[in-house]
Simulated scan of single mutants.
Amino acid sequence: MADLWMPAAERHDIRDHAPTDGGPAKAVAHITWDRNATEAEPQALVPYDRLKTYFTGTGKGVAPHMLWNPFDGKLCQFVPATSRSKSLADGPGGTRTNRAGSVVLQIEALFFPWCVVDGKAYESLDDTPCAGWEALHAWVSSWGVPDVWPLGRPTDFRAHRDEEVWRSAAGWYAHAQVPENTHQDPGSWPRFPRAGGGGGGGAQGGAGRTYEPFPGSAWFTLGRRSPIVARMHRRLVAVGCDRYRSSSGQDTLGSGDVASYEAWQRKYSADHGKGWTGSALTWPPGKETWDALKVPRG
């Protein structure tokens, strides 16, 4: 069963839930577009925590399902998957927008054109590291949203809306493609991860087995409770990196997970001739060793 709340995301439930109408499963791609920057005058990216505070406070009335920081992979969810959110304009009468599907998952990427992060300016979203995209995509896919753009993958800031397609076709839509809306974002969006490549559908194993995609380093905070942690625990034991002092609390990240995973990083480095030292061998996990650990999906 798909998770109402994405395990890798912070949960900040704004309590404003309402059902969707049913129909084709959809996801809508947005950017926050907090500032109007230019190539000549780029501006610093607005802090993630400021947007999180906005959507849980005065911005509740326009909150999406998910706020995604493509620079570090942080994610924050405000309503469960099966509830409508309010990121889309939806006038009285006419076509439904926020409710027009079995799910209508609204994803807001923390981004605006020519934002500056760590001294570098980024013109488009798909120029960013897109950290956390694979895990985010996997969660959206788990709700039946297919890897298609019925009105085309966004590549610019031009609007392209078709009410009939919106009503009838499942898949991903740009905000610029949704009826009754005037916004022209997101301008670009990362490509769907390749099947079997450790991406949105999870890494593929023998006999079609699917593994948990890397949730991003920021996900691994001590005290986090998730079935993913328990499955990671069992894999670390299976590969001979058991440094746990207790078998209790297997679904909660703790010191035993840190010690065991660091043992796995050392083993992986040695077995594959990596020669890693320093931070490459310390917590938190990185994508390469996580994919190699092959944590099964639930």
Rank of each mutant, 00 (worst) to 15 (best):
47 P>M: 09
94 G>I: 04
141 S>N: 11
11 R>H: 15
54 Y>T: 07
185 D>Q: 08
202 G>V: 07
241 C>L: 08
194 R>S: 08
30 H>C: 10
146 P>T: 05
289 T>F: 02
219 W>C: 07
239 V>H: 10
236 L>E: 11
298 G>I: 02
185 D>V: 09
194 R>A: 12
179 P>V: 11
229 V>T: 06
114 W>N: 10
146 P>C: 06
16 D>I: 02
35 R>K: 14
135 A>H: 10
41 E>R: 13
43 Q>F: 05
18 A>H: 10
31 I>C: 10
188 S>V: 04
83 S>T: 06
112 F>S: 03
287 K>A: 14
291 D>L: 15
296 P>S: 10
223 G>S: 06
94 G>Y: 01
280 A>C: 00
158 R>W: 09
18 A>I: 01
39 E>M: 03
6 M>H: 13
288 E>S: 11
217 S>A: 15
281 L>G: 07
140 V>L: 14
295 V>S: 09
265 Q>H: 06
72 D>M: 05
233 H>D: 13
223 G>I: 08
179 P>M: 07
103 V>P: 04
23 G>L: 07
245 R>L: 11
22 G>K: 06
180 E>Q: 12
17 H>Y: 02
119 G>N: 12
217 S>W: 09
59 G>R: 04
274 K>R: 15
175 H>S: 12
181 N>H: 04
210 T>W: 02
278 G>I: 01
173 Y>H: 05
10 E>D: 15
226 S>R: 09
155 T>G: 14
254 G>C: 07
33 W>L: 10
53 T>Y: 01
205 G>E: 00
111 F>Y: 03
275 G>V: 04
290 W>N: 02
61 G>F: 12
95 T>M: 11
152 G>L: 00
263 A>F: 05
207 A>M: 08
77 Q>D: 03
284 P>M: 01
101 G>F: 02
298 G>H: 12
113 P>L: 05
93 G>C: 00
142 S>C: 11
262 E>T: 07
80 P>T: 02
292 A>Q: 04
29 A>L: 11
241 C>N: 12
200 G>S: 03
258 V>C: 01
217 S>E: 15
152 G>Y: 13
92 P>E: 09
67 L>K: 02
196 G>N: 02
235 R>N: 06
4 L>T: 08
205 G>Y: 03
127 D>L: 00
279 S>M: 05
26 K>G: 04
170 A>Q: 07
264 W>T: 08
204 Q>K: 09
267 K>D: 09
4 L>F: 11
55 F>D: 02
92 P>R: 08
65 H>E: 05
201 G>D: 05
9 A>E: 10
13 D>V: 01
232 M>H: 05
255 S>W: 13
88 L>E: 03
254 G>D: 15
75 L>C: 02
289 T>H: 00
217 S>F: 04
61 G>A: 12
228 I>K: 07
105 L>I: 15
159 A>E: 14
